[in-house]
Design a protein around this nucleic acid. Structure first.
Lengths: 118, 118
DNA sequence: TACTTGATCTATGGCAACTAGAACAAGTCC
DNA sequence: GGACTTGTTCTAGTTGCCATAGATCAAGTA
């Protein structure tokens, strides 16, 4: 399923969940109007606390990607699927170039963050 | 100077310092044989604790980028400057594509991390 | 009305980051 | 040799984030 969580990762659980949903929306796997599972249910399914799931949902709400309503749950409001093919191609090229320059993944990520600030 | 630290950032101080040095070496601003400032001195200059600076230095040593010796300090041993022009070009393309696809910086970063895992 | 589901509050345990001070050891320099 | 430099190691304390837990409340649905 789309909500794959890695307990061993050093990335916080709620942050992983946020990333999954964010990408799911960008890729069109989650469409506007679609409902996410109730926090309690998803918490049980992913073996994490309700509060942790709710925290992730609230972050997503703050980003404008979903809407939360009591009794109704979490509904995707984000933008429709974007065309990611250009992004995928650019990613491939970048990863290739970084490897040839022997840049570590960390250094590459730092460079990307810097480039996106401008 | 090269060691620019952002106290407001959510990225740990030592991690920021590590990134700066890592990039400095990759870009050729820091060359093999060059000395980094003593931890105590850099700590004062950047207004952070000596231990925090030392922690960063130790991470860099574990990555094989610098060498640490008592009495002598931290010396760059890392690889010579790599050619980053291809990486820079790929970065530009990626940032452009991500903007057009309206991908958030966070989502883009997540995609890059995934792409580099393979 | 009964049920669902997010919102809010309090509390707790664990861990990482950062700070602080002290003593120590290996190296440099005169 | 002696003074100085600089990383190493240790102990210790504070802070904040993450995650868990349980209870209660409020808004919406059926």
């Amino acid at each position: 399923m789309i909500f794959r969580i890695d307990t061993a990762s050093d990335e916080p659980l709620f942050e992983q969940l946020v990333s999954r949903v964010r990408l799911g929306i960008a890729r069109g796997e989650l469409r506007a109007g679609e409902r996410l599972p109730p926090a309690r249910e998803l918490g049980t399914a992913l073996d994490m606390n309700v509060h942790t799931v709710l925290h992730a949902y609230q972050v997503l709400r703050d980003e404008g990607l979903i809407e939360l309503r009591r009794g109704r749950g979490a509904v995707v409001t984000g933008p429709a699927k974007a065309d990611l093919s250009a992004v995928e191609r650019a990613l491939e090229t970048l990863v290739q170039a970084a490897r040839e320059a022997r840049l570590s993944p960390e250094a590459t990520t730092t460079l990307l963050k810097e480039a996106m600030k401008r």
